[in-house]
Design a protein around this nucleic acid. Structure first.
Lengths: 121, 121
DNA sequence: CGTCTTGCTTCGATTTTCAGAGCAACGACG
DNA sequence: CGTCGTTGCTCTGAAAATCGAAGCAAGACG
């Protein structure tokens, strides 16, 4: 009956706490979070917003090579998750988002030491 | 010259500190780390190893739905990065890996509160 | 009006991931 | 020895995510 096949299969599901996500039916929040953050550019996007709001194209420029379609998709997910929001100055971390990125702060230190250790190997 | 086109393009590059990675030529360690962790199942894999070593198939079972090929690929990357190693008891976090996952500990708390806040929206 | 810049969409091409079958190596058992 | 069962892992075709680049509507500016 469908004259044309539904071509709407576009939107990948947005992982939210309480919902089933990739690899976990449990609905445990951490699983949704790991799914959300484990998508390409997701971590990077948040990371780039840590110092303040950025306009769409500025944010894209920071992540050289990220296509606008994916950036838009990630932003949509992060907004749905309440980690990022859009306002006058562009995109920025929400209160929650800022709390989240703070947890990642030490990551930078770890990475620096990682570099040293890697060189030693 | 190439009689046949090199069909060996299979192995995606493994992000390591000091090397250029997706979206960053800088070689800054944090960029390599974000690339490494921003691949599907990477975070999840580390997460599942936090409580002790797991055999390949056990690890796969924990991440219901992850294909063995991808698991193998992620493990290869994480081993190259020195975050995971393989031994008698299976795969386990290295000293570095344990330090890394510790940074993610608070993530669980954040996710729990995230769930509460989401419900409130 | 013309020209910028903005956020964002669309589309074909490429890369990554999936799902599952399958294989060699090993240990246990009889 | 032969036959299981399990292991880590590879292979393959198909589906999904991502890329890359062009393009569009809306707003600001002159």
């Amino acid at each position: 009956m469908p004259a044309d096949k539904e071509r709407e299969a576009r939107a990948p599901e947005i992982p939210l706490p309480g919902a089933a996500v990739r690899g976990s039916q449990s609905g445990r929040p951490i699983m949704a979070l790991l799914d959300l953050l484990g998508r390409r550019w997701a971590l990077r996007t948040i990371w780039e917003l840590r110092d303040g709001p950025l306009l769409f194209r500025a944010l894209q420029a920071r992540c050289a090579g990220m296509s606008s379609s994916v950036l838009n998709q990630r932003l949509r997910e992060l907004r749905a998750a309440g980690v990022v929001d859009a306002g006058a100055g562009g995109y920025r971390l929400t209160e929650d988002g800022r709390r989240l990125i703070e947890l990642f702060g030490p990551l930078d230190d770890w990475a620096e030491r990682w570099a040293v250790r890697s060189r030693a190997r």
